[in-house]
Design a protein around this nucleic acid. Structure first.
Lengths: 345, 345
DNA sequence: TTTTGGCAGTCTGGCACCTAGAGTGCTAAT
DNA sequence: ATTAGCACTCTAGGTGCCAGACTGCCAAAA
């Protein structure tokens, strides 16, 4: 720790200041800091250091006779080098483990649970993106006839995911036609990855129009339509109400904007994607996220992976003065366990 | 209108007062009311009438020198007899119709759209319960083998709904076993109503253990397990953020409680169920709902039905001073159209 | 008997003012 | 380099005051 161009004493004081500020959200004065920090220095000395830190843009005072609060830059320095990450509390570690021990029917459910878990243990908003279904092996395709020209396509992936698509087709297909098509497709493509299947379907449809019998052609065209709707990108946000307490957002208008961002999940998703290429826990403080409604918020996120391949991102959203030293390990271990849970699934 | 034990003038004045109060949320004074109402009476006279209304508990003044605001009881009298319901604005009627004209894949989607629609046109929160799936005809059952002892049960209902259930069975079943079972069940029960099927399954399993071959027994037991998880009662709430504007809830704590109720949907569902036995639009004002977090809110709801059978309830949630004369017809027509849309589905 | 004008009384909201408390910046001494 | 001391600044909260908005009541008018 402590390499940010600051001498050791300045670092220590910044750390103490941030910790205190995170605890009770009030500007911290020199007298308090003098008592708080292990350093045995007088308030006056601290005032000098504070003046330096202010010069560097790491702290600011809301007005002349208030203490200092850390700026976004100050928090950045704090999380980058000063924070001493607390080991997980026993109780919380257990809570996380039992949550992942519960049986689930789908990765959708797994993701929902993880999101709720994050929000519960951090008392902030938890957010988890749906896992990218790359490396998803197609297991089976079924077509069931519905009324009219509509057909229900059922796609079984890996051993847990099931997707339904309703297709509106050009003509009526008999039950046996559909069965044949399904059998053909399952035989042909089962065991392959979904992405590959999608590509191969397109190829075959283009190249081999003549050389195939109409049954196969129909099958492939149906399958293609079933696949092309693709996975709707999405994420699960839990515990939004936890954010209503935090004083920084006491302004109802800001709260409102924040909640509207939660409805348009695309933006959140995009933000988290930035984190998917990073290794381990990443933190966005205030404006770093690039989204105005999140200006007063921080995001602590981590990618989760199966067999070293990143499938998605999870994290929490909270006020910039969140308890990073507690949240970081929680996000970290949750990401690991979610990866593990997805693998066994 | 006007039979609430009030003479005509008092009614007219109450009506004018409520309308004015709904418009701008301020206490209404006698001078204003004298100008506003068609009646040609002096403020002094109005003050006398107001004193009477206050005696009856229909209006109240926040403090000595403020105007009057209607109490919950006053609003009750207003919506019960005084309100002149506005015909739907052309623009809004069109918006509703085009919304229902859109093609949908499932009644889930239909309900979601209706909820969003309600919130959009009223600028309040829209809420729609999922339709009870009584009179849902079973069309088809399929079992697909998953890994281990797990089986995916697919139940096609009516011609649009598809339900997936994952069953953890006691032993492994071969693909042909599963196919046989599915065929048997589909032949046996297709065309029957889901509720009946559930009942009959239980009966057959109890009565005829000996007389059936094991294949049929297995099939029935599987089907029973697939059905017993039952429909999870649920409802869709859209446009919650619209409620963040309303001044009555500027208190963040109240807002928070309200939003937490939205997460525990059961309570909302229970409230709306009260309305499902009523005919047409029903209104709950403030505490009438019986849920403390909704004390500052009104709910305007209407059951929706297919072929005279009520399948669910929809409505809007907003401040007690919502524009009832606009909202009532919107809820009314949306309920009708949702019923119609479900029928054709 | 009902309605009205007038008047006294009351309450809010905004403004100006004050004070105590907290904390800073600067300077001079250690 | 650090510290004590002092003057200064700013906020939060309290008080007093005034204009404005209503009401309630009473007595006069219809």
């Amino acid at each position: 720790m402590s390499d940010s161009g600051l001498n050791e004493r300045a670092s220590l004081l910044l750390k103490a200041l941030v910790e205190r500020y995170i605890r009770d959200g009030q500007p911290v004065g020199s007298r308090t800091l003098s008592r708080e920090s292990a350093l045995e220095v007088s308030p006056a000395t601290i005032r000098n250091v504070m003046a330096d830190l202010e010069e560097l843009g790491l702290v600011a005072s809301p007005h002349t006779s208030a203490g200092r609060i850390p700026t976004a830059a100050g928090l950045r320095v704090f999380v980058d080098g000063l924070v001493t990450v607390k080991p997980l509390q026993r109780k919380i570690a257990e809570e996380i483990e039992t949550s992942f021990a519960e049986p689930v029917d789908s990765s959708q459910e797994l993701v929902t649970n993880a999101s709720k878990l994050l929000s519960q243990v951090t008392h902030l908003a938890g957010v988890v993106t749906m896992p990218r279904s790359t490396h998803a092996q197609l297991r089976q395709i079924e077509f069931l006839p519905l009324s009219g020209n509509r057909v229900l396509a059922i796609i079984v992936v890996n051993s847990r995911e099931v997707q339904n698509r309703i297709l509106n087709l050009d003509r009526h297909y008999t039950e046996s036609e559909l069965r044949q098509a399904a059998n053909y497709l399952t035989e042909q493509f089962s065991g392959n990855e979904v992405d590959d299947v999608r590509d191969r379907l397109i190829d075959e449809l283009k190249q081999a129009r003549q050389s195939m019998n109409s049954m196969m052609l129909n099958a492939i065209s149906m399958a293609q339509r079933a696949f092309e709707q693709g996975e709707k990108e999405d994420c699960v946000i839990a515990g939004k109400t936890n954010l209503m307490d935090i004083a920084e957002l006491s302004d109802v208008e800001k709260l409102r904007q924040l909640f509207e961002v939660f409805n348009r999940k695309r933006d959140i998703l995009h933000l988290l994607d930035q984190s998917s290429s990073a290794e381990g826990v990443q933190i966005f403080i205030g404006k770093e996220s690039g989204y105005a409604p999140l200006n007063e918020c921080s995001v602590v996120s981590a990618p989760y992976a199966v067999d070293d391949e990143v499938l998605g991102v999870l994290g929490v959203i909270g006020p910039t003065r969140m308890a990073y030293e507690r949240v970081i390990p929680i996000v970290d271990v949750t990401a690991r366990l979610l990866g593990k849970a997805l693998k066994t699934g």
